[in-house]
Design a protein around this nucleic acid. Sequence first.
RNA 1: CGGGGCAUGGCGCAGUCUGGUAGCGCACCUGGUUUGGGACCAGGGGGUCGCAAGUUCGAAUCUUGCUGCCCCGACCA
Length: 441
Amino acid sequence: MKLSNYFMPTLRETPKEAEIVSHRLMLRAGMVRQETSGIYSWLPLGFSVMKKIEQIVREEQNRAGFVEMLMPTIQPADLWKASGRYDDYGKEMLRISDRHDREMLYGPTNEEMITDICKMGIRSYRDMPVRLYHVQWKFRDEVRPRFGVMRGREFLMKDAYSIDIDKEEARKSYYRQFVAYLRTFERMGLKAIPMAADSGPIGGDMSHEFVVLADTGESAVFCDRELVDMAIPGNDVGYDDDLEKIASEWTSRYAATDEKHDEEKFAAEVPEERRVTARGIEVGHIFYFGTKYSASMGATVQNSSGESVALEMGSYGIGVSRLVAGIIEASHDEAGIIWPASVAPFDIGLINLKAGDQETDEACNSLYQQLENAGVETLYDDTDERAGGKFKNMDLIGLPWQLIVGPRGLKAGEVEIKNRASGERETLSPDAAINMLTAKN
RNA sequence: CGGGGCAUGGCGCAGUCUGGUAGCGCACCUGGUUUGGGACCAGGGGGUCGCAAGUUCGAAUCUUGCUGCCCCGACCA
């Protein structure tokens, strides 16, 4: 992509409404624009990152045996009246009426809808398990939206639902998501720790929040250092195998958010040198809720003994749009964002230090073509901005690599490569640069 | 929803106390000199001063009402 053909309105100064670092950087990098409190337009750069995140989530959901579908944003109120949540949800739910004065709502989540779908679609225990997910916009009319897209009212979320015949089967579905989450966040360059969460109406041990460690995180978290260093299951993990062993490796060690933290327990269970106190951001939540909705909504099926039983269900959320901000919180410096390669909007930023200079233009065009042909996503700054501004902008938007080309270097047959994260630069020939950059991607 | 604050050009701000018809920096446009980490000179465009009433000869400025946004708290992916 040539920058001259792109839309990336970067700002030199930070709009005053932005307090936290990810919000500031997202506005400065031209990733989002606030439309009203808690609602954002996603400009090309931000949209691109969100899509990369979404794709990783999708791949790991698929790998875990969940099947993608899509439910609507607008739902009829009747479904929610059936489950009893229409009244319970309160003002957080955005209620709308259509032209016929029928009560509708902008969905804050989809348990009722998926239950209703399964009520129709599952006729026998033989049809189970059913494991579905979708990635869809949600709306929760937060009392106080803040921190940019971190706590917006409209947000993109992956929510998955498992439907099983009994609790033991439901547990297997739960662990699939547990392991999928470990892998998903790892792939985004994040260190996410599962932490025991309020276990909903059913109780028990099947509810976890996944918290990303970031110095500027919103809440304090406490855990065993072993969790921070623990290996993540590889992409060859057998989802059809018993995953409980993997999960218990994690759940058997101390990890708690601020609210659930028990200092005495922490001290008793974790040797002092392994006690980690950090800041974190919740990016995912998985929980088993049993028959809460299936029972109230009459979603039942006959089991192998011929008894009619309510569906055993769980739901599993990941805040996709929130992750864009979460990753920035976990990965930035004074100069700007530092994207992990897997979610970077482009792999490489090609900087033409003297647009308009024939030799430099030709060299850049050639490099740009070679990179594109090799499938390396490149943002080519071909504008006639001054060199200093290009450097600042490129650092701000945080692409993993910069390829810097100017007349001075070209005279010596050289270009420069800069690694955004380490700041290391290397001078080498254009061919060597291409080899190196295409090998990395 | 309680407490606090803000609203003046795309962004950041001054001007408001003490009313006299709007200014600065950045960004933008033109010309020139520049050009390897946010250049310089000259010229230029852009604002119903959040909205509505009121006071006044005259309101960004004073009064009243409204709206929007931000921050702290309670709540949440």
